[in-house]
Amino acid sequence: MRRIVLIAGLAFLYLPPAVVALYSFNASRLVTVWTGVSTQWYGELLNDPQIMRAAGLSLAIATAAATLATILGTAAGLALARFGRFRGRAALTGLIAAPLVMPEIITGLSLLLLFVAMQQLLGFPGRGIGTIVIAHATLGLAYVTVVVQARAAAQDRAIEEAAADLGAPPARVFWAVTLPMLRPAVVAGWLLAFVLSFDDLVVASFVAGPQSTTLPMVVFSAIRLGVSPKINALATLLMLATAVVIGIAVLLARRTAPGNSAGPTAAIR
């Protein structure tokens, strides 16, 4: 009974994407008729300048947003794990978790209104890559915080104390001891924030400028026109790429929190 439930549940989750992956190798242009194995759609994909440009842009945005999110999230995670009970702790926890559950359409619209108001008052930031990076960093911050907090709370502090006793100034202790010990969690958080940014359609659509069309936006407008073998190929590559990144993040996060079974899954708890 237990096995039937699990097999049915996993089939429900994984069969639809598996069908997409299968049909991406279909020679026929008709999406439901199987005529033979072919990789021509992948070739067409690589020769599509619009898709390749959007992919490059999305990679650049995700890299920048994940880096920013990691800096902010590591600070927040350390604060929550190490500073004990400080005033405003509950508020910070709530603030960090809220963007995770907030419907994206609300976050997107409200951030856009902020950017427009800032543009009016200060003259920056103009809508485009920069605004998407800021928006995605705000979303990714939560993931990094949770993963880093879990690691920092579990960490043995004796080595840091020893370093301090031997006369290392706090900055030196941080760079030479604390950060290297946190590294797997920091990298795992970075990867999660990267995937989150790379995958986001709604928030980016609001805060993007006319020149900054990201990959999910291209995919979305293509999907609206219908199913095509080329989109099947793109979808397959996207799933493969995110699966690899998440796999690495999980392995790192496992090393991060011994006994804590579910690595990055902690991020959405």
Binding site: P216, I223, A235, M239
Partner: peptide, 10 residues
């Protein structure tokens, strides 16, 4: 964590 749009597309 894997592409939201792709899963709906499927």
């Amino acid at each position: 964590f894997t592409s939201f749009l792709v899963r709906i597309y499927a």
